[in-house]
Every structure is written in structure tokens, then in C-alpha cells.
Design a protein around this nucleic acid. Structure first.
Lengths: 153, 153
DNA sequence: TAAAACTTGATTGAAATGGTCGGGTATAGT
DNA sequence: ACTATACCCGACCATTTCAATCAAGTTTTA
């Protein structure tokens, strides 16, 4: 049920770009330094995010990356799907990456039925959560790093 | 975000044993045949489920496996945790398999904050879903294999 | 035209995944 | 007691995935 490091880096990079959202462009090296991501690896990931339409790039000496859309129009579900593949816990309940499973009859597979519920839950939540939300929390946490649970008088 | 085949097999095997829940014991071979799981592999998995306290075994010529608890006392969350590890999408938000993540300051990590929400969501849902639910749906689907969405007059 | 920065594809080492194999141990039935 | 059956245990293996690096482009600005 885990995200790969690749997916994590992708989300961190998007958050970084989201915080600086605007017409200008940010160098890979800069993002890599700030987020502690190996530059060569991040290069790969940002390129992948570009083919996915999440970011756009500018080449050459003043080049770099920026978000291709406004942060609130980038749901985490879409990003994870593009970088990692299915959100669904098993292939046979995936909407976007369906693959046949081992059971003899899918329509009567109890596991499928239950896992579909898990999938829908995760997909709905991650569809609502956007890069904008990441940016907002990032700003919020900078001033107020305590969690509500730790917060009392 | 995917379950491994191992985890899927574990849940299928538990469903099978759940359907036959009782004092008697079921042979590995029988489960393997019914669920289409390689016997040697299933052997390994059931053994693992045993050390996790989900099933118990009887050795010898009349040996086999049965559930160690009643189906409604086996939440899928516990099974997946034992077989696969963390439910959390990233290690730093896992309650049971915590591991430090790459960000400089966890308390101010926006990704962590968001992923905790995803984790809690999945964990809560899979805690409520039990083997009993799998068994019930399994019976239900045997008579009525259409989904509610396909069902109309 | 040189330097900076993205682009593309290949490569690599380590770990995880999905099994398999061989022999061990317990137990029911004869 | 013996034997067949079925679980127990640990090692092994082939393939794929992961995380990361490298080399050699191409584009653009100064």
C-alpha cells in the first residue's frame, strides 16, 4: 500500500513549484537542493511530470520548470496515477489500470467487491486533495507547526 | 498503492476458511485448488498467517487449517499489516511501521500532513472491514451476482 | 560561441516479488 | 511399530522493480 520514493519526490517537487507558482521558472538544481532530492533523479521525475501535463519547462540557460496549471487544478490522484500507476489495491478494481485477477468469476468475487470500496475511498479522497492543499498546509505549518492534537492551553 | 499477490492470496485463503468456519480443519491442497493458488506458495502464506494468530493448524494425516478467531474479529487491516507491512502511503505517517522520511522537518512537512489523512482513511475503513464481511459478500454474490448499479427493473 | 540547463536513453546495483525445492516433524490409521 | 499424509521450516532462484547514475544530446541566453 506504499508510495514509491519516486512518487514522494514528485509530490514534493510539485509542492515546491506550487509555493512559487507564477510565470517564472525554477531550476532543477534549486528544487533538488531545497527538497533533498538527487538532481539526476529529479530530472527524470520532472520530465515525467511534464509528459503528464503537470509541469512545463523552459530550456536553455535561463531554463527551469513551473506548474502547467494552477495548483488547485492538480489533484494528487492524477499525479500518483501518472507516476505510480493504479490507486486500487488490486488490479481488477482499478478504473484506470484494470487487469484481470486470479479469481474464476470476477462478478462473484467477494474480495473484489470489498477492495472496490477501498479503492473508491482512496480515489475520492486523493481527487479532492490538490497541490493547492499541499501549498496551503506548507504555509500554515511554517507558522504553526503543532498539530491540533498537541495543542492545548 | 497496490497489494502484493501474497496479500491477495492471504485474504482469499481467509475468506475460504471463513466460509467453512467451525471446529474442523481444511487441507492446504483443498484451499489451493479452490482458490487457484500454487500449493507450495499457499503453504508459506498460511504459515505466516498462523504466526500472526489469524489461523491455527493441525498437523498429521488429518491435518489442515482453520480460523483462530471468529471471522468478525479479523479486520483486513490487521491481516494486511501482518503480511505486507504498513498501510500508510509513506513511512513517516505509519503508526505501526514508522520510518523517518526525507524531509528536513517532519512537523512542518505538508506532504506528511496530507498523507496522514489518507492513511487514517484507509486504516479506518480496513479496520471496519473484516473476514466476516468477505464471507457475507461471498454468499450474497453467489445468489445475486449483479451489482447494485446494474440492478434495475 | 561558450556555458547553462533541460532531454533522452542506457545502465547499474540492490531489493522485492512470486514462486519452487528438499527435507523435517507430527499424527491417524492399520 | 509402521507408513502414509499433511503441516513445518529454511534455503534457493528467476524475474521485475526501484532508486539512482551516466553519457551524450539539444536548446537557449549572454
Amino acid at each position: 500500500m506504499k508510495l514509491t520514493v519516486r512518487g514522494e519526490y514528485a509530490l514534493r517537487a510539485l509542492t515546491n513549484l506550487g509555493r512559487r507558482y507564477g510565470p517564472h521558472v525554477v531550476r532543477i538544481q534549486e528544487i533538488a537542493d531545497e527538497e533533498g532530492i538527487p538532481k539526476r533523479f529529479l530530472e527524470q521525475i520532472l520530465n515525467d511530470l511534464r509528459t503528464g501535463g503537470f509541469v512545463e519547462s523552459r530550456r536553455g540557460v535561463a531554463g527551469g520548470y513551473r506548474l502547467a496549471k494552477s495548483p488547485e487544478r492538480i489533484p494528487l490522484a492524477a499525479v500518483v496515477r501518472h507516476i505510480e500507476g493504479a490507486l486500487a489495491p488490486i488490479g481488477c478494481v482499478s478504473e484506470n489500470f484494470y487487469e484481470k485477477c486470479n479469481c474464476p468469476d470476477e462478478a462473484r468475487c467477494a474480495l473484489r467487491s470489498v477492495m472496490k470500496e477501498v479503492r473508491d475511498n482512496v480515489a475520492n479522497l486523493m481527487q479532492k486533495l490538490t497541490v493547492a492543499e499541499l501549498v496551503q498546509r506548507s504555509h500554515q505549518l511554517q507558522v504553526e507547526p503543532t498539530t491540533s492534537a498537541d495543542y492545548f492551553i
